[in-house]
């Protein structure tokens, strides 16, 4: 047994102090990271409660219950930021990644404290699979939320749809790694592959954005921005 609350305090205190000396994006990331760790602890409480209530074994819980609980818990702070602070698109991504990274870090800390860190390969797999998976699901969620906002489709069905995508990805990962063998290898590789793919798409988007900005007409009067919006749904 480990005392997860004590571990959280131990990791959180230096981060809280560092807030005093940080600004803007760095501060946002640290707050998100801390939130991710707290959310991880709360998810563990809820998951533990659901194990007792549902009667599932530990393996079935990790496959069927954990993805739902963890993704909902990670999603709630993002949604809070989105609605309360009306966060910009770039900041939403930063917040989501911070929460995902904080969640993964705290989960890994607790796991290593329970199982030990003697086997380097195992620790590496743990870090590059579960750790990356939490970030991938959050990046996916942030991308969906950005898209919903861009097209003014921020409806209940759109939000739940976006959340469901990240839940199903998480569920698929947990299912694949639940059994030893080829499926677990695919499961371990899956988050890293998705992270690379998302990173490439992001790089390409940035490149396209930069080239479009460079090609834009120098005369702002001649360029009608509204022309670009004709396909975007009006409220």
């Amino acid at each position: 047994m480990i005392y997860a609350e004590n571990v959280l305090i131990c990791i959180a205190v230096p981060l809280i102090i560092s807030l005093v000396f940080s600004k803007k994006n760095a501060r946002r990331f640290i707050v998100s990271f801390l939130t991710g760790m707290v959310v991880c602890l709360l998810s563990a409480y809820i998951g533990g409660f659901l194990v007792l209530v549902s009667g599932y074994g530990p393996e079935d819980t990790s496959i069927f219950v954990s993805p739902v609980v963890e993704e909902v818990m990670k999603f709630l702070p993002v949604l809070f930021c989105f609605y309360i602070f009306e966060t910009e698109n770039e900041d939403i991504e930063l917040t989501s990644v911070g929460i995902g990274a904080g969640f993964a870090t705290f989960e890994n800390c607790c796991f290593i404290l329970t199982s030990g860190a003697q086997n380097l390969i195992y620790v590496l797999i743990r870090g590059s699979a579960v750790g990356v998976m939490h970030i991938v699901t959050m990046v996916l969620l942030a991308a969906c939320l950005r898209m919903l906002r861009k097209f003014k489709l921020f409806s209940f069905s759109g939000i739940v749809g976006a959340l469901s995508i990240s839940m199903s990805f998480h569920g698929l990962y947990n299912l694949l790694v639940s059994e030893p063998g080829v499926s677990s290898y695919i499961g371990y590789i899956l988050p890293m592959l998705c992270a690379l793919l998302l990173g490439l798409i992001r790089l390409k988007d940035r490149f396209m954005e930069q080239s479009q900005n460079a090609q834009k007409s120098p005369d702002p009067v001649m360029h009608n921005d509204k022309e670009d919006d004709i396909f975007i749904k009006s409220e």
């Binding site: 993805p67 749809g161 976006a162 959340l163 469901s164 995508i165 839940m167 199903s168 998480h170 299912l175």
Partner: peptide, 8 residues
């Protein structure tokens, strides 16, 4: 998760 994905 497959039912969640269908819901999505």
């Amino acid at each position: 998760a497959n039912e969640i994905a269908e819901c999505a």
